[in-house]
């Protein structure tokens, strides 16, 4: 029961960081949603704030780690050019493009994934910053809180698209 170096990094990039990202999003969104003075006491706001700060910052950090490992560790293996006569199964991009019924996984799936994923850390970092900068004052700022919830959700959806295509592409043309 072993993993190659490439499989190890693919698991870290997709499953390890992705799982923590998902948990952090749930905590962060629930925290933003419930940070309302009419729902909780001062003590309640402070208690929720710790979870909110943790959720938003962990999600932002996980998003950065995911795109950096994905772009600079895993992606070069995906897009490596095969030498003449090489078995294309070890070169996912070339393998997909060489098969007309699989080419769209690269042309649409990978092309979208590799770009849209980078929106996630940018949006999540903005949310995390505003949360830590304003703290409990956010409870009284409905407009800002709603804006943060939408940006946080967009960050999650961008990562979700990337994660979903990453999982499918790795199933069709795994990095070995």
């Amino acid at each position: 029961m072993t993993l190659t170096e490439r499989e190890f990094w693919t698991v870290i990039h997709g499953m390890g960081l992705g799982t923590i990202f998902l948990l952090a999003f749930s905590g962060g969104l629930a925290g933003l949603w419930s940070l309302r003075p009419e729902w909780v006491t001062v003590a309640g706001i402070q208690e929720r704030l710790h979870r909110l700060i943790a959720g938003t910052w962990i999600m932002a950090i996980m998003a950065w780690l995911t795109v950096i490992t994905g772009t600079y560790i895993v992606y070069p293996w995906y897009r490596a050019k095969p030498p003449t006569g090489a078995d294309l199964i070890r070169f996912p991009r070339s393998y997909l493009l060489a098969n007309p019924h699989l080419a769209e996984w690269h042309k649409f799936g990978m092309e979208w994934k590799e770009h849209v994923a980078w929106l996630s850390p940018i949006l999540a970092t903005a949310v995390a910053y505003v949360v830590i900068r304003y703290g409990s004052k956010l409870a009284h700022e409905q407009k800002i809180r709603q804006a943060l919830m939408l940006l946080f959700t967009l960050a999650f959806l961008a990562a979700g698209v990337a994660g979903l295509f990453g999982a499918f592409i790795n199933k069709v043309a795994p990095i070995r």
Binding site: A126, V130, K137, H140, L151
Partner: peptide
């Protein structure tokens, strides 16, 4: 309930607007 304070929203607006500019630049 927490006491409502006047919020200087400039830093929040700057962070949020910059995220939009970063997204637009990528696209």
């Amino acid at each position: 309930m927490a006491k409502k304070e006047t919020l200087n929203n400039g830093p929040a607006a700057a962070a949020i607007l910059a995220s939009g500019i970063g997204s637009l630049t990528l696209g």
